[in-house]
Design a binder for these strands. Sequence first.
RNA 1: GUGGGUGUAGCUCAGCUGGUUAGAGCGCCAGGUUGUGGCCCUGGAGGCCGCGGGUUCGAAUCCCGUCACUCACCCCA
Length: 426
Amino acid sequence: MSEGSKPAKRQPLKAIKGTHDILPAETGAWQRVEGVAREHFARYGYREMRTPVFEETELFARGIGEDTDVVSKEMYSFGDRDGGSLTLRPEATAGIVRAVIEHNLANVDPLLRVYALGPMFRRERPQKGRQRQFHQVDVEAFGVTAPGIDAEIVEMGFTFLERCGLTGLELILNSVGDAEDRQRYAGVLREALRAQAAALCADCQRRTETNPLRVLDCKVPTCQPVIEALPRIADHLGADAKDHFAEVCRQLALLGIPYRTSHRLVRGLDYYTRTTFEIVATEGLGSQSTVLGGGRYDGLVRDLGGPDLCGIGFALGVERLLLLAPPAADEPRCDVFLMPLAAAAGDHALSAQKALRAAGVRTVLDHEGRSFKSRMKLADKLGARFVAILGDDELAQGAWMLRDMKTSSQQPVPLPALVDHLKGRL
RNA sequence: GUGGGUGUAGCUCAGCUGGUUAGAGCGCCAGGUUGUGGCCCUGGAGGCCGCGGGUUCGAAUCCCGUCACUCACCCCA
């Protein structure tokens, strides 16, 4: 652009890489999912909470962990005019925890359970089931230490996905223990890994020092034998954490939720303690198979400067959910299509349209004065249940000719009776 | 950030080893009756063949570059 070369052809304006438009034909499916979410979570006593899409960068750095991939290389951060650093939220929990602390909600709400819906931002390379702006449904419950809440929230997520029509789901559980367990285990693991360093991939050699738990997540084939032989966290849990996890599993079995445990399930955010879980799709998502993931975070609120308040939650990716959901049938957009033919019919149509809409009837009136046939085709495409025709003959009778598009039958309806008549039939 | 694949109409794609007006299906618009949709038939609109350069008498087609999209790695929802 700076050189005096060819006049650069103006590129058409387009959405930023990794973002996408949700077009009118798609919003129905989104609204359905959101509606199910609201209704479902309400059954468990959850209410919606909305926090800003951007926060101070420090919140995420401290909350999620400086060494995580999300913080170290995926955040959309930018300088504010006053010199501060702001970041588009890469996940929801940190902002919600900040708000809980800021408004002292733990002392305000005796049942602190919230959900949130909205966009998250991570600067990753897009691929199937992964965007730079994507949407999550997020759920958090605070203040309950008992394992019952773990089982309840996992059950809630699982049944939510089922209610959205998903099948072929697999629930995976693990416990990463309390902070001390985790720390101690990380040390044990690091020792074991150092001894095997030669057999590990370069990433794992690096992770051995930075975050040994994440070695367990490695998918490089040559690392697998080493990983399988590593000491397992289950053998390094404190008695409390061990009992806690056993009770979570017991209750889930009681609730009839199928699951398997995996000692290798280590989630990428640093704040998790004790229970971690993930729901994956066995097919349909390519390599991004996780639909829902979450866990307990008993130290997070305190670490962010709040009270010693435990918490547990999960996030699920709406785009991924939609990829797996059965396709939605397109809904009719119109109940009644008005078709004034005679010149004198136009005013009748206008007032009928207003009255119908006031009565809650979805009404469309073609303003272009197109041919009869064109308008019939349009009515059909809109899925109109009825077409109301008003031509010279009908005017003379003082009645609409009301056509039922399903049965192809039609009957006269007196002009003033149209609204009541239709309300009775829709 | 690193690899692979693909860029032709609104969508899905054809276009053989370079050859003259670039095609199909679907969708869209309009007609096939004077006031009746779906099915069928006919017609029409709509393409700098991603962009730039090169080879050639001639490039959608071959070569180079570039950009975009996509899948995968990494990591995550």
